[in-house]
Design a protein around this nucleic acid. Structure first.
Length: 486
DNA sequence: TCTGCCGGGAG
DNA sequence: CTCCCGGCAGA
């Protein structure tokens, strides 16, 4: 067993890292300690093929093997001896599992699922993002993601893609210069993304990876252009065109070949680029920077300005200090403002929406075709970017779609058996809560209302432990007796 | 202490 | 999903 897992890991090229980014929700999957399912649903679908079915077979065999071992124990009906043996066997199993890198899997949390490679479904991010206190986690997760989600051999592409909030980021004043420089570079070339196929050093890049590189570009500010340009300095820039990644995507079918389980996942890489995004922007369009802090709709024309605003007003940091840990980046977004109707445009940017009610700050979906790189991670990775032509689209579109995708990916239709009176599974709560956060009754409301014990003798009493196999299933499972109901 | 069964883990 | 079991709480 141990060796099997080792083989699996090496064959795939990643270890527990992929496990941490199993963005499938639902108990069974998150709890599933088998590597294959994780890889099927996680990032690996974009990078590997062929290994997954093989591993499933092995797991199936393993399960069968265990089962067959246990069967005789069940049969003898002796609780004590059987139990002891059973426990020993269980311990053995556990020991084995411990060698299978299951611990990390168990810790996988939906809120840690990041759209690092733009493939992960689910609407988790905005949950975390709302809470400023979570930001460090967020950044750490980014780092973890960068380090683990990719096979070793592919990390080269991430050398400059330290997407997490850069603790040592240069002060925002410098950032503007960087932005300017990057923009100039960008304007000299048609689009940095066009170079991806030709400049790829080795094998074709899956879209996910190219996507990461694009993300990295916003911080490397070297050759790949910068999406976070400052509109105040450039009236009509030749914006780098994210949609070109779509072409990259098409060039490499590998990136889109996903197995069944990751269909919703593989859909994501091109979420940003589905639209034939217009490279030419109207002259009247101008990028502004909008504070996303709840109830704060401050819009400034420069990123440094908005960062300063956030830093001083919302984060409570010293205004004269130029220190920035980059956290401000999470609290503002670039918006594209039609200067012809600036007022009207801003009125549509209500940062909150009924479907995203929650603590501040709430991040509306990106309304611009040049979203801030980090916002691409947060919002874009979970939803198809709203059509860039539909600037007037409701700001809730992203979240709505996210929720749909989330449901589609998990689709928990809990079937409650007749005798079963338990509450819906927690996972169901989670799903419903996402859509109806305000009207969900508290799960606690029904707690404590334990079903009163019935008067009828149950299977246990009637048949006794000796004839346990005559018990009803529920009794055997220590559930509410279905045979002798009250 | 026995018993029913809820809640949750494992596969 | 089935199967199992720890542990709570009523009898």
């Amino acid at each position: 067993m141990e060796s099997k897992y080792i083989v699996e890991k090496s064959s795939v090229g990643t270890g527990a890292g992929g496990a941490d980014f199993n963005c499938r929700t639902g108990r069974s999957v998150l709890r599933d300690t088998r590597v294959p399912s994780v890889e099927k649903t996680g990032s690996m679908s974009a990078y590997t093929n062929g290994a997954v079915p093989y591993k499933n077979v092995m797991d199936g065999g393993l399960a069968a093997e265990i089962k067959s071992e246990r069967t005789p124990l069940k049969g003898n009906g002796l609780s004590l001896g059987g139990r002891l043996l059973h426990d020993v066997e269980k311990n053995g199993l556990l020991d084995q599992k411990d060698t299978g890198s299951t611990g990390i899997l168990k810790r996988a949390s939906p809120t840690h699922c990041l759209g690092v490679n733009g493939q992960l479904p689910g609407g988790f991010m905005h949950l975390d993002i709302r809470n400023p206190g979570k930001q460090p986690d967020l950044t750490n997760n980014f780092r973890v993601a960068q380090g683990q989600i990719l096979p070793q051999t592919e990390r080269y592409s991430l050398s400059s893609s330290h997407i997490p909030v850069p603790r040592n980021r240069k002060p925002s004043g410098h950032a503007d210069k960087e932005v300017m420089a990057a923009t100039v570079l960008t304007s000299l070339s048609t689009s940095p993304l066009v170079h991806y196929p030709s400049s790829a050093p080795t094998a074709p890049k899956p879209a996910g990876r190219a996507w990461k590189e694009v993300l990295s570009a916003s911080y490397s500010s070297s050759t790949s252009g910068n999406w976070s340009w400052d509109a105040s300095d450039h009236s009509v820039p030749s914006t780098p065109s994210p949609p070109l990644l779509n072409d990259t995507n098409k060039s490499f079918p590998l990136s889109s070949q996903g197995d069944d389980g990751s269909e919703d996942v593989t859909e994501s890489p091109h979420f940003m680029f589905e639209d034939p995004i217009p490279r030419k922007r109207k002259n009247s369009m101008k990028v502004m920077f909008k504070c996303l802090w709840k109830n704060c709709e401050k819009v400034l024309s420069t990123s440094s300005g908005i960062q300063r605003h956030i830093r001083t007003i919302h984060l409570g940091r010293s205004s004269d200090s130029d220190y920035s840990d980059g956290e401000e980046d999470f609290y503002y977004s670039e918006i594209e403002v039609n200067m012809d109707s600036l007022t009207e445009g801003l009125s549509n940017l209500t940062p909150t929406s009924p479907t995203t009610a929650g603590p501040p700050p709430i991040f509306p979906p990106p309304l611009t075709d040049v979203p801030h790189s980090k916002h691409i991670n947060m919002n874009g990775s979970q939803c198809h970017a709203p059509s860039l032509l539909s600037q007037s689209a409701p700001s809730t579109l992203c979240h709505i779609r996210t929720d749909h995708a989330y449901q589609g990916a998990t689709t928990h239709v809990r079937t409650v058996s007749i005798g079963e009176k338990r509450q819906p599974a927690p996972s169901s709560h989670a799903i419903v809560n996402k859509n109806h956060p305000l009207i969900m009754p508290s799960p606690k409301s029904t707690q404590g209302a334990r079903k009163p014990r019935g008067e009828a003798k149950k299977c246990r009493k009637v048949y006794g432990m000796e004839k346990r196999d005559m018990w009803c299933t529920a009794c055997r499972w220590k559930k509410a007796c279905q045979r002798f109901t009250d």
